[in-house]
Write a protein that binds this DNA or RNA. Structure first.
Lengths: 324, 324
DNA sequence: TTGTAAGCGTTATCAA
DNA sequence: TTGATAACGCTTACAA
């Protein structure tokens, strides 16, 4: 038995006799042998590892429902393919760049996921410069040729608007996410489009940074208007819940005096009073499909935009017809 | 310049003249060369990579405040040391074992973190069998010789009990975590001890699985007692918030009729009404120190129990003196 | 102080 | 269909 034969067998390639194959497999079984990933990587120049760098402000880390679910989804996509995921969480842009550079230069990863793309994000260019495959998770990056895979952010806000409109609301506020992110822009655009399509007047969206404090503050801003909205759509559940508390503290009742729609459907959305009407994305599936797409990219395959499950609109008790 | 010299320089080892060192560094700088992690791993048989396998029920993934913070903490400990983290999220025990075995056999990691240890957990034995270093994150495992690093779980519950007692509560209920986990046991023991020390009578703790639904159900169980408690301490914030909602739905007011204490201090704890009194752990620091400890273990160092920051007790508005 | 050469555990190339 | 043998990019004796 030569090493070559064994190599052929475990990568089940043609050109080895059935009996030799059987003997190799038996021997492997007896010895409990497993191929060494590092050595293989050295030989093939492929590490069978993908990288995920998450840049998150520490105060948002434990709230963000996206991160853990997405990671779990990636895992379900990667495990059957024998790929591993190396993960890095960084606090700022500088550390973020270093993280990508190290991952690439060390040869630790074959490709990386790019999340939370910012407008004028340097990462797509950096990736082509470093020569590693990348997949944008979210709305496509303008002008770059890095492929992107994201759910249709717009459909969620459109669903929210049409739901509120059907309840009779005509004066709807929006607390959108932090400025500078591609997905925030995409959702804001969708927001304006949805209002226009529905023939509703627009209250300028108030930007907030996804934290509870910002959500509460934005809520007060909207309720302080000369003509306050009868419903508010928030960019995430955390801000929506903080918004409910803020509204309640002003003596308003939700949903009687103010309807509230969240985004994400965190497990808590169901546990508060009133239970939150919100938009749910299947982040787990998103992660799985993203993982498969990125693997196929690193293996030289073409990127094919796979179908992601559409967002779901979950109607609970935080929305009701407006007071007239 | 020979490869050996270069190798000596980048690992800054003695035995190379200052001028040779300078020339090597210059060349490295000019060529933008970086050592390849895989090749180095093959040679040294050390991957400079640590593994974290998280077994989590999918429905808890996006709520668990521990996971993302701990990962971020690990990262801050690992990055300066040039180590990477490979992460795996698995749904059940079988997949969990496979994950550890693959990580070890592939030679992908030098050591792993063991979280959420269960009573009679097979993992400590598996780790010694696989011959890879491991560090238990949480209370120590009975009888094993795998080192453990955890905050004193007891002090949180003791603080909660003494806070409630000082407010005048004498009949305090407890919704503890899922049975079968070492940390649940540890906290339950601490709970009984704290009550005994305070000379308070014990209501049997109700076990719940950390979900909001379970928290609500446990709350109803306690409030259905012939003599319901005037205060309840929960094993996590999610259950506490669900508990508040459950109590409110029965016409009780929090904190006037029922005081509530949570555990974790998730960002939402501050955004609901009433803001939640809770126990905060510095999970970020915990992760950092755990990472450093595990690296030192894999490099053959002795394990030295580092000091973790003590838990903090955060008093907000969900606790008040009992009605008399 | 430096260079040479032998591994590390795979895959890939070629003769046999 | 097989078995040598050379990479892959590093570390580490050991010799110069």
């Amino acid at each position: 038995m030569s090493k070559a034969t064994v190599s052929f067998v475990i990568n089940d390639r043609p050109g080895v006799s059935p009996q030799a194959r059987r003997r190799v497999l038996e021997a492997i079984d007896q010895l409990g042998w497993q191929p060494n990933a590092g050595a293989r990587a050295l030989s093939t120049k492929r590490s069978q590892t993908l990288g995920l760098v998450m840049r998150r402000p520490p105060e948002l880390l434990s709230t963000d429902p996206f991160f853990p679910q997405f990671v779990a989804g990636i895992e379900t996509g990667l495990a059957p393919l024998g790929y591993a995921l190396v993960l890095q969480v960084v606090p700022d842009e500088e550390t973020e760049r270093q993280a990508y550079e190290r991952l690439a230069r060390d040869g630790r990863v074959d490709g990386v996921f790019l999340t939370d793309l910012r407008t004028d994000d340097p990462r797509p260019a950096l990736m082509t410069e470093l020569g590693i495959s990348a997949l944008i998770v979210g709305p496509p990056h303008h002008g770059g040729r890095v492929p992107a895979l994201g759910v249709d952010d717009g459909s969620g806000v459109r669903r929210a608007v049409s739901h509120l409109r059907s309840l009779g609301h005509r004066w709807i506020g929006h607390v959108c996410g932090a400025a500078g992110y591609v997905h925030t822009e995409a959702r804001c655009d969708a927001w304006r489009g949805a209002l226009a399509d529905a023939g509703l007047p627009e209250i300028p969206p108030v930007a907030a940074d996804f934290t509870g404090a910002a959500g509460a503050q934005a809520t007060h801003r909207l309720l302080d208007l000369d003509r306050p909205p009868t419903a508010i759509v928030y960019a995430n559940d955390l801000m929506a819940i903080a918004g409910i508390t803020a509204a309640t503290s002003r003596g308003l009742r939700v949903p009687e005096d103010l309807s509230v729609v969240g985004f994400d459907d965190i497990p808590l959305a169901d546990c508060i009073a009133p239970p939150l009407t919100t938009v749910r994305q299947d982040v787990l599936t998103w992660g799985r499909i993203a993982a498969q797409a990125l693997v196929s990219l690193t293996e030289g395959g073409k990127f094919q935009a796979a179908e992601l499950p559409p967002v779901e609109f979950v109607v609970r008790a935080s929305t009701a017809p407006p007071r007239t």
